[in-house]
């Protein structure tokens, strides 16, 4: 959670501090409440194994959420993340030699070339989105909706309803292997979170991301190249999604159409539940980590208490709605506070 300056908790300042920090405090309490609830409700929930289990379950979502955090901080949105992850994962499989029983007319290439080509595919998706949003001026909401459909189309054309099983060795290791008993996906996800946090908090680019999100017009009148910043976050997001897709297919052990469908909602929910402002400029990787854990604990905990699996879908929706209410309310509270200054 970012920006802790100002607001020394004093007599009347406590209220202001709370108003300012609502978006950071609420998700932490949500996480604690859920953890306590599931620990009491199920004896199998609160174990070290299960903790790693939860982390492993959110690791792929986490990599996507990292990219999405950049985008949402600038007050844009990317709805194509899951579709791009899917398309990029399938592209990688397409460039890898598949077992005989896989009936896909693909182009097998050496692993390293396949990985490079696959990363370029992710880059291409990002650049197209960036071009549409900044150069043409299509709202990101609708531009990424189009990219979502295009990415789904790429997936469909490449696998044609089949399933691929083989990937470059290196990716297979990262996606399904372990190191010292910990899954590589967790390590990769933590690495992404760490680097993103450093970039957002300690670099010039990170400052620009926050300032563009905080007041785009002011950033422009301060001589910040707003279009370049927006383009950069769209590309970063697509790259994160692509890498998540590559690890994801290896994690699942198969590459097929529509297998990332739930990741769009999960990734957006992680960022927003964590407290990053939908209006941009507030929040950060700290928030996203809490959001991911809330989501992970919720999904995992609901399995432990053996709830109707159809009800799970509804509960996730309600939790997301509650988070949205808090997110927007926190913004309103802040603005009220600012206008009474």
């Amino acid at each position: 959670m970012t920006t802790g300056e100002a607001a020394a908790p004093g007599s009347g300042r406590l209220k202001r501090f709370l108003a300012d920090q609502l978006r950071n405090i609420a998700p932490v309490f949500t996480l604690l409440a859920l953890a306590v609830f599931f620990s009491i409700a199920s004896p199998s929930f609160l174990t070290v194994d299960n903790a790693f289990n939860i982390m492993s379950q959110v690791s792929i979502t986490g990599i996507i959420a990292v990219g999405l955090t950049f985008v949402i901080l600038t007050a844009e949105i990317d709805l194509s993340v899951a579709a791009v992850a899917n398309a990029v994962g399938i592209t990688m499989a397409y460039f890898t030699l598949q077992p005989d029983y896989v009936n896909i007319a693909n182009i097998p290439l050496p692993g390293i070339i396949a990985i490079v080509l696959t990363l370029l595919t992710a880059l291409a998706f990002g650049l197209i989105t960036a071009f549409g949003v900044t150069w043409i001026g299509i709202p990101s909401f609708i531009m990424t909706l189009a990219i979502m459909q295009i990415a789904n189309g790429v997936s469909a054309l490449l696998v044609r309803g089949q399933i691929a099983y083989s990937y470059p060795e290196f990716i297979t290791m990262l996606g399904s292997g372990t190191i010292f008993g910990i899954r590589w996906t967790i390590v990769v996800c933590l690495l992404f979170l760490l680097v993103a946090h450093l970039v957002l908090t300690y670099t010039r680019f990170g400052r620009y991301v926050y300032m563009v999100g905080g007041n785009r017009e002011a950033a422009e009148y301060s001589g910040v190249n707003v279009k370049l910043i927006i383009a950069a976050v769209m590309v970063i997001c697509a790259m994160c999604s692509g890498i998540a897709g590559m690890l994801g297919v290896a994690y699942f052990g198969s590459a097929q159409q529509n297998q990332f469908d739930t990741f769009l909602l999960d990734a957006i929910a992680a960022v927003v539940v964590g407290g990053t402002s939908l209006f941009g400029g507030r929040g950060g990787i700290g928030n996203t980590i809490i959001g991911l854990l809330v989501l992970g604990v919720l999904n995992n905990g609901l399995d432990h208490i053996q709830i109707d699996s159809f009800l799970k879908i509804l509960i996730r929706g309600l939790i997301l709605l509650a988070a949205l209410v808090i997110n927007v309310y926190a913004q309103v509270l802040r603005e009220k506070q600012a206008s009474t200054d």
């Binding site: 400052r207 620009y208 300032m211 905080g214 007041n215 017009e217 002011a218 910040v224 802040r334 600012a338």
Partner: peptide, 18 residues
């Protein structure tokens, strides 16, 4: 049009010279 109300003064000053 060129100030960030909810940011501290120093970030407002430095944005143009980062």
């Amino acid at each position: 049009m060129m100030l960030f109300r909810s940011e501290p003064v120093y970030k407002n000053v430095s944005i143009a010279i980062l």
